[in-house]
Design a protein around this nucleic acid. Structure first.
Length: 285
DNA sequence: AGGCAGTCCTGGTAGC
DNA sequence: TGCTACCAGGACTGCC
């Protein structure tokens, strides 16, 4: 499941392989993949054609490519989305949703997505807090890797919430980029149970938690950034090149790496949370 | 207005 | 073997 580090790997790959190239043709093979582009698939294709792609950018789990015309091509990978750069004529992937061909007849850009939670759209750029953002991203908070990320402000925002700490970590309007995997990893490092109340969390503990979230994502990026083929811009939840370093996520009944207690799995928001019963005691009540 | 349940989607797997 | 049920989960929608 692509979270911030995986999306950053894709951003770097896009920047390297498509920046500076001009779009010659766009083919939308599945309408759901451009459902966030309200004017529809035909409009998406027409407006993207002829544009030159500029810098690839990211905030949290959203990424986009600036267009010569001033707008941006926005992408969210959802759960299973991939951006592939493939030679023209390479066989279509089973879940190929959008194909972008370039005027230089070089490798084409493909958006492939099995579960179609992700998608592409064209969006207007607006300025938020001094930073240009595609309009659909305007409400997304800065992520911990943003040079302008304000840790003190994020801690304050987190503690203002009246909810459970894991819910808050996953709230992209507080801090962006953290998904279920890195939330569980950060909570384990901070020795906090995800059901702890945010408004009863001390300032120092909240700051520690956010620092752990930033650190675990940074480490994952260090692993993922070196493991993808230069000609194959790819992030794939199933490939799991970050799995080796996970302490709790997906490790039910396996020993906690700190104390050896079997890791537990608990239902959480129609999915799962993983934690150590000893290091992360469940709050009372 | 903030919090939160419900919804979208498909491949893999467990269970019968 | 072949069916059904369930699980993965990010982010938006709409309700309270």
């Amino acid at each position: 499941m692509p979270e911030l580090p995986e999306v950053e790997v894709v951003r770097r790959g896009l920047h390297e392989h498509v920046a500076g190239r001009t779009v010659a043709a766009v083919e939308v093979l599945h309408p759901r993949a451009i459902r966030r582009h309200l004017p529809g698939a035909a409009d998406f294709a027409v407006r993207l054609t002829g544009q030159t792609l500029r810098a690839a950018r990211r905030r949290g789990k959203y990424l986009w490519v600036d267009l010569s015309g001033g707008d941006a091509m926005l992408a969210h990978l959802g759960m299973s989305g991939q951006m592939l750069v493939q030679p023209v004529g390479a066989p279509d992937e089973k879940h190929l949703r959008v194909r972008v061909r370039f005027a230089d007849d070089g490798p084409e850009l493909r958006f492939v997505d099995q579960r179609t939670f992700g998608g592409l759209a064209l969006a207007e750029i607006v300025e938020v807090d001094g930073t240009p953002l595609p309009r659909p991203v305007a409400h997304i908070a800065r992520d911990p890797m943003d040079p302008a990320f304000d840790a003190d402000a994020a801690v304050a925002a987190l503690r203002r919430r009246r909810t459970e700490v894991k819910r808050a970590l996953l709230d992209q309007t507080l801090v962006s980029g953290v998904g279920n995997i890195y939330a569980d990893e950060a909570l384990w490092r901070a020795r906090l149970h995800g059901l702890r109340a945010t408004d009863k969390l001390g300032r120092a503990k909240a700051a520690e938690l956010l620092a752990h979230a930033a650190q675990v994502m940074h480490e994952a990026l260090g692993e993922g950034g070196t493991s993808f083929d230069a000609l194959y811009v790819n992030v794939n939840g199933q490939s799991g090149y970050f799995d080796r370093s996970l302490a709790v996520y997906g490790r039910e009944d396996e020993p906690c790496r700190r104390c050896g207690t079997p890791v537990r799995r608990e239902p959480f928001m129609n999915r799962s949370s993983y934690s150590c019963p000893r290091c992360q005691p469940r709050p009372r009540g």
